[in-house]
Amino acid sequence: MTTTKRRGPPIKVDESKCTGCLICELRCSLRFEKAFNPSKAQIRIRRLVGADNEYEISFTEECDNCGICARYCPYGALIQEKKRGAT
């Protein structure tokens, strides 16, 4: 059985707008680890290999939908919905 830790409203993802700036990963790692390392973030930005620098966005099980990634995304690729999601 998987348990979800998500508390905040869902985060809407528009991968076509992702520029690969990693601001979301850097900000998320700062929140969780109090230090910078994209690999420690609960959001994952991955290049789709062979797909010309287009990016795939996903979230780990540890993500609690705090929305900090969406607040910092400067390109509109991540938007937190106003309605609270199921927990």
């Binding site: 690969g20 700036c21 601001i23 850097l26 620098n53 287009e54 400067p74 390109y75």
Partner: peptide, 13 residues
């Protein structure tokens, strides 16, 4: 496309 940490991306696909 943008470099890490940049909100003013000026690289292009």
């Amino acid at each position: 496309l943008a470099c890490p940490s940049c909100p003013m991306g000026d690289k292009e696909l």
